[in-house]
Simulated scan of single mutants.
Amino acid sequence: MAALRAGLLGVGMMGRHHARVLREIEGVDLVAIADPGGDPHGVAGTLPILPDVSALIDVGIDIAVVAVPTAFHEEAALALADAGVHTLVEKPIAHSLDAGQRMVDAFAAAGLVGAVGHIERFNPALQELRKRLEAGALGAVYQITTRRQGPFPSRIADVGVAKDLASHDIDLTAWVAQSTYERVFAQTAFKSGREFEDMIAITGRLASGVIVNHLVNWLSPMKERVTIVTGEKGAFVADTATGDLTFHANGTIPLEWESVSSFRGVSEGDVIRYAFPKREPLRVEHEAFRDAVLGRPSDVVTMEQGQRTLQVVETALDSARAGTAATLTA
């Protein structure tokens, strides 16, 4: 079978990595790159830099990756859908729910694979975590907490921290728990002088009853990417910056210290740090997209799922503005 002819729209900070992986994975041939801003990172090689999505389509491509600013996702995706091109759009799916829904509808109507780049699902720590949860290693899940903090990225100018970063945590939490968000309450802060929020704290509950908490900001000098899942048998800690997964088991040894044993909760048990293969998440994501296009079994993040994540983000922002909890519609 001939390789899928791939086009890439946008070769900025994220697009340059897409270009590398598209050149490396089996069954895909990167044949065209477009970016109205040129090639700041010198990734085009022998390929010319085309001016826009129309020129990209004219080359004749089977699949496309859209890695331009969020505000331009809809225009590019709708043009690609109209041209019959399977498309992976970077997260978030779009700048608004209306725009995201138009994208979902366009790809569904055309019978095309439309995917969203929620890359954390493909992080080895989270994939290992979900496998262990499905195997019953934690028993009943009680709570999922995430922390995603770090310095402000000057390249992000068109959305706030909720859409750019919290969308990762919302998607991965629903995916790990295999449950949708039911209710959220959020608070935001604006400290950097921009029109968009640079800090958000979200608490909520999933339809399964699992309690969730997300702390996300662009105001921390330290970079942190942590997911903690607490349940019946202990707690998993996934560090997605390093791909590490650690299990903290509930203790089974009787306590003889009276002031501690009088607390009728759990006690500290064994701590296990797992060893498992760690593949680059972006490569695994591209392989899932390729497989979906070829009709193979795939865990690609669909546009419908990306739209649901955006709905949760928008609901959280509405909650922060109103100062009240908000319920998600079905």
Rank of each mutant, 00 (worst) to 15 (best):
Arg23Trp: 06
Arg23His: 04
Tyr274Cys: 04
Val260Lys: 06
Ala32Pro: 01
Asp58Gln: 11
Glu314Ala: 12
Gly160Leu: 08
Ile49His: 06
Ser262His: 02
Phe263Thr: 09
Phe289Val: 12
Glu256Gly: 14
Thr302Gln: 03
Val59Arg: 02
Val271Ser: 14
His73Glu: 15
Asp270Ile: 13
Ala81Met: 04
Met103Cys: 13
Ile63Lys: 01
Val301Leu: 06
Ser167His: 03
Val159Ile: 10
Ala135Gly: 02
Asp164His: 12
Gly139Phe: 00
Gln143Lys: 13
Leu80Lys: 07
Arg102Tyr: 03
Glu197Ala: 12
Ala320Phe: 09
Phe185Val: 14
Ala177Cys: 14
Val176Trp: 07
Asn217Ser: 11
Glu120Ser: 08
Thr46Tyr: 12
Gly37Glu: 13
Ala316Tyr: 08
Leu206Asp: 03
Val43Gln: 07
Asp198Leu: 00
Val313Asp: 07
Val176Asn: 01
Ala162Ser: 13
Phe190His: 13
Ala162Thr: 05
Gln311Leu: 01
Val65Ile: 11
Val229Leu: 07
Asn250Met: 08
Val229Gly: 08
Arg148Lys: 13
Arg283Met: 06
Asp82Gln: 15
Ala326Thr: 03
Thr242Val: 02
Ala2Asn: 14
Ala177Ile: 02
Pro51Leu: 05
Gln311Gly: 09
Leu172His: 04
Val210Thr: 10
Ala140Lys: 11
Ser208Arg: 09
Ile272Leu: 05
Ala320Gln: 12
Ile63Val: 09
Arg194Pro: 04
Glu232Ala: 05
Glu134Tyr: 07
Glu285Ile: 00
Val89Ile: 12
Asn123Tyr: 03
Val68Arg: 01
Gly209Pro: 13
Ala316Phe: 09
Arg205Phe: 08
Ile272Glu: 07
Ile200His: 02
Gly10Cys: 04
His286Ala: 07
Tyr142Ser: 10
Ala320Thr: 10
Phe289His: 11
Ile61Gly: 06
Leu47Trp: 14
Asp52His: 10
Arg16Val: 15
Leu4Glu: 06
Arg130Lys: 12
Asp299Leu: 03
Asn213Gln: 12
Val104Ala: 08
Met103Gly: 04
Val28His: 02
Glu304Asn: 11
Val266Cys: 11
Pro124His: 11
Ala3Asn: 12
Ala125His: 08
Glu304Leu: 10
Lys91His: 05
Met13Leu: 12
Thr315Cys: 05
Phe236Val: 00
Ile272Ala: 11
Gly269Asn: 00
Glu26Ala: 11
Glu224Leu: 14
Pro48Cys: 05
Ala238Asn: 03
Pro51Ile: 08
Ala76Asn: 03
Ala76His: 03
Ser267Asn: 09
Gly100Pro: 02
Ser179Phe: 01
Tyr142Pro: 10
Asp318Leu: 15
Val53Pro: 01
Thr315Gln: 13
Ala249Tyr: 01
Glu75Gln: 10
Glu256Val: 11
Val312Asn: 01
Leu22Arg: 00
Gly117Gln: 08
Asp98His: 13
Ala322Met: 14
Val210Pro: 09
